[in-house]
Design a protein around this nucleic acid. Sequence first.
DNA 1: GGTTAGCACTTGGGCATGTTGAGTGCTAAG
DNA 2: CTTAGCACTCAACATGCCCAAGTGCTAACC
Lengths: 335, 335
Amino acid sequence: MSEPRKLEVLRAIVEDYVHSREPVGSKALVERHHLGVSSATIRNDMAVLEEEGLIAAPHTSAGRIPTDKGYRLFVDRISQVKPLSAAERRAIHSLLEGPDDVDDILERTVRLLSQLTNQVAVVQYPHSNRALVRHVEFVLLAPQQVLVVLIADTGSVSQKVIDAGSDVGDDALMRLRSRFLGSIAGTQLALLPQVLPSVIALCPPELRGLAQTLANGLQALSDNSREERILMAGTANLARSNVDFPLSIGPVLEALEEQVVMLRLLSDMGDDPRGVTVSIGRENPYDGLAEASVVATGYGSGAKVGILGPTRMDYPTTMAAVRAVARYLSRILGG
Amino acid sequence: MSEPRKLEVLRAIVEDYVHSREPVGSKALVERHHLGVSSATIRNDMAVLEEEGLIAAPHTSAGRIPTDKGYRLFVDRISQVKPLSAAERRAIHSLLEGPDDVDDILERTVRLLSQLTNQVAVVQYPHSNRALVRHVEFVLLAPQQVLVVLIADTGSVSQKVIDAGSDVGDDALMRLRSRFLGSIAGTQLALLPQVLPSVIALCPPELRGLAQTLANGLQALSDNSREERILMAGTANLARSNVDFPLSIGPVLEALEEQVVMLRLLSDMGDDPRGVTVSIGRENPYDGLAEASVVATGYGSGAKVGILGPTRMDYPTTMAAVRAVARYLSRILGG
DNA sequence: GGTTAGCACTTGGGCATGTTGAGTGCTAAG
DNA sequence: CTTAGCACTCAACATGCCCAAGTGCTAACC
């Protein structure tokens, strides 16, 4: 039995199964793909593949379906990313043009990606490490409540209401605003922790308490504001592709709702800058996603875009779509 | 046949069916509810109810299930809102305390509501009609791109990137900022359309073009920023309660993703300030929701909170939960 | 009049049984 | 190493049967 043919058989099984959703048998295989051998030979090969844990039979006399491990091998060694169709390229082009809000762009991106792949699309807010502080605003909402607004030069705006603990004067707030603004405008968000203490130190003693509170607020905003959130679209696709497995859809929806879960999932996936990363079925740390795969990649300065779908998915085209969308996204939002 | 008993029978059918998910027959009915009559009598009553279109039989010899019309009658005339349990009251109390962001509060609200009801919870961003302009900020992102930020005294922050058409100077922007701020700080968002033209008129001619553009931006922000968005949680509950009807879950997810659909749905539902409004099954304009009901009510100054679930739902408790949550929300966010 | 008991009738669901066809594994020959 | 052939397995489908739940109706009852 030749090694190349064995891989060819696995490829054929994966492709047929993804296409038909049904276990594929040896006879059907030789008919659909012109491997130059008989079904009996294929059967032998399949027996080997099964022994190696790459495929499995749902019951004694049914065809085989790929295991997680089988998909893994397929993705890593057999498949090659399919180029997108011209229509798809055009769709990406046109949908992502227009010099709009970051939020707008991301929203359109997930929609587009979910339509291209027929899966659930997910995008993480862009990392703002390199982003610079463009503006800071303190707004008094109530005697003890201050709204802290942090605006980056990327156009991202984040805000937070903080509790001052004691009454705050409007003038004090103004003075602090100028101080903060003067000191931190233009610095990288990531450097705030190092810069803020010196700002506080320079404040007149009577304002220092408030300054500290505000600094904490800014700190929190720069840490976890945007980049810790995700946007998604296309959950309805779950219902469509999983007509037969309604059971598993619940846990998946739960996972999708837990932003924390999705964020960990995305960031745990390596950061290969050239290609997309795939996490298949049980490779996946979260139990609810045992029958799901995630295809994702980084964009811009390290945030992730990707899709989530059933393990039985068309990896080559999906990977192509994710990669293409990520590239455009990088281009639009700047590296 | 007495009218009151007929209603009593309908009530019993609804309650049993909601509880058991199975068509309910005449015999089971007399056993579980001590109506003082025999099953034969109930059968006669049921025949009448069926004639009136309030209940239906899935097939010749099965029990009856309520129709949309039946639920309608149940909700309107028979049921009375159940008081929440002490534990539930406490949950509402504790989860909604904490003087945080509007976004935070809303997010916690939908989570809470979805847990209380085991349905999909939906909340519309609060109407900001009465909100006052607290602050305005123009930030230059690129030579021709300006970020317009509008901060209301409610703590709501909305932003938008606009294209200036020609290069913008930082100083010009500063001057305009002061002008706008001086003129519109403290005015109601809703009144912006009337106030903005006069601000522009007062600008020096060379700035008027830019002023107009910025004013348009502010206008757009005040119109459609927040109040046209919704937040939701608990989509996983759909999968749980609909174990038997996996078919219908797809369209429902689609509807939920289309914010426009949900917004229309919510605003089309009357605005009875005292009670919750219920829209049952096909009463619902959107086809995908033919087997779903929406229970919603207004809060604050007219935005909606509510839940969406299968027509077969426990209306009394659900309505109670929605009402209670809406009340707390009104209280926290201020009328 | 409304209510009830009794009974014939309908029908989906469960179960045992049989049949079919796809698919396998194995063996022996090429 | 490949292939033909064959016995074997087993889900899926079909058929027939029975049962329980539930109905609708009629005739008696209060």
